[in-house]
């Protein structure tokens, strides 16, 4: 651990050590977790929260790796620790976490769109009916209205579905 401490000091990173069962009095930016302490006791399990985890591996046996994977580590270091590798593991952990978070946001957005597909469909049908137009024209109308009102197609569709009609065209 003294190697990590020294290397972290050089990198300007403050260290808090935390043993199994003990309270955690900080919101860490990154957590190094030794595979010897796995599985973490249940109160400690939530402690690292959303911060990236770097796993410290003492063995490569699959049974141990399975427990390590439960931490969803962003990076790892093999024990015994050396000064080389610590910086790369940190960079990799932060980068990996950032990319994963971006992906998560993207997935959330896509899921949201998927959910609102029914609403868009309902709005298209409504406009086709009220304006006696075909589906492409109805969709184009909704899209143009949404653009004019600076809303998303999903938001616009929800309004149409709720009001039962297209807002008066302005253009």
């Amino acid at each position: 651990m003294s190697i990590v401490r020294r290397q972290f000091e050089r990198l300007g990173i403050d260290i808090f050590t935390w043993g199994p069962g003990g309270p955690l009095e900080c919101q860490p930016d990154v957590a190094l977790i030794d595979d010897e302490f796995l599985p973490l006791a249940s109160p400690a399990r939530a402690l690292p929260g959303r911060c990236p985890v770097i796993a410290l591996l003492g063995t490569e046996t699959p049974s141990r790796l399975k427990l390590v994977l439960e931490l969803d580590p962003a990076s790892f270091l093999v024990k015994p620790l050396r000064s080389a590798g610590i910086y790369a593991a940190l960079v990799m952990a932060f980068e990996r976490t950032e990319r994963t978070n971006e992906l998560k946001q993207q997935v959330a957005k896509l899921e949201d769109r998927l959910r609102s597909r029914r609403v868009v469909l309902a709005a298209v049908l409504q406009v086709m009916h009220s304006h006696s137009v075909a589906e492409p024209a109805a969709f184009a109308l909704i899209r143009r209205t949404a653009m004019e009102q600076r809303k998303t197609i999903e938001q616009m569709s929800a309004e149409i579905a709720a009001n039962g009609s297209l807002p008066r065209a302005t253009g």
């Binding site: 063995t59 046996t61 699959p62 049974s63 141990r64 399975k66």
Partner: peptide, 9 residues
């Protein structure tokens, strides 16, 4: 410890 974990796996 590791011997049992791995044998059990």
């Amino acid at each position: 410890y590791v011997w049992t974990w791995e044998t059990n796996r």
